[in-house]
């Protein structure tokens, strides 16, 4: 009987701890992915401003050179752009919005920023594109700072909360 109680108790603590870790990890994942996204956008900037490669080629190179965890979204945008003749660049960017919200733990404002890149990408000359990239990258920095703050504040809290919740449930049940 005691053995059963021990197993049950440890199961409860284990699962609530995992739950806490899961919620806490979302913050550090977002932070991590924002940094990877920044790298990807920087590669895209180089491709466009210095290499003047056509957009489909530039997007493919970002996919190739960037960290696949995030850069796969650029390959998806490229495929959509080339297959859907009615779409423009912005449409292609919007198709991935929902997916990256779930997969990359991005918040609405992160996605908004990425979409605003899609709105201007490719539509003007190099000088103008360069300016746009600068603005986007600056805003990304701000978002990263914010993400870091949130992570520092919440990650530990959620993890502790998970363990404590488990212990609390155990005490009530006992």
């Amino acid at each position: 009987m005691i053995a059963l109680k021990l197993i049950g108790g440890s199961l409860i603590i284990f699962s609530s701890t995992m739950l806490g870790f899961y919620y806490g990890n979302r913050y550090s994942k977002r932070m991590e992915n924002l940094i990877l996204l920044e790298n990807c956008i920087k590669i895209l900037e180089t491709e466009i401003v210095y290499g003047a490669s056509p957009l489909p080629e530039a997007l493919f190179n970002v996919y190739r050179k960037g960290n696949k965890k995030v850069s796969y979204i650029f390959e998806k945008i490229r495929v959509h752009l080339l297959t859907d003749k009615e779409a423009d660049v912005f449409n292609s960017f919007s198709t991935i919005a929902q997916e990256i919200k779930e997969k990359l733990n991005f918040k609405t404002e992160d996605i908004e920023l990425l979409l605003s890149l899609g709105r201007t990408l490719g539509s003007s000359d190099r000088k103008d594109q360069e300016k746009n990239f600068k603005i986007i990258l600056n805003q990304l920095q701000v978002l990263q700072k914010e993400a870091k703050k949130e992570r520092d504040k919440n990650e530990r809290m959620y993890k502790n909360l998970g363990i404590l919740m488990g212990i609390a449930i155990l005490i009530i049940l006992l």
Partner: peptide, 16 residues
């Protein structure tokens, strides 16, 4: 506009 985008491969900067 759409035709121009297709012609320039969505990349006005590449055809400056």
């Amino acid at each position: 506009m759409k035709t121009f985008q297709l012609i320039s491969n969505y990349s006005v900067y590449a055809f400056e």
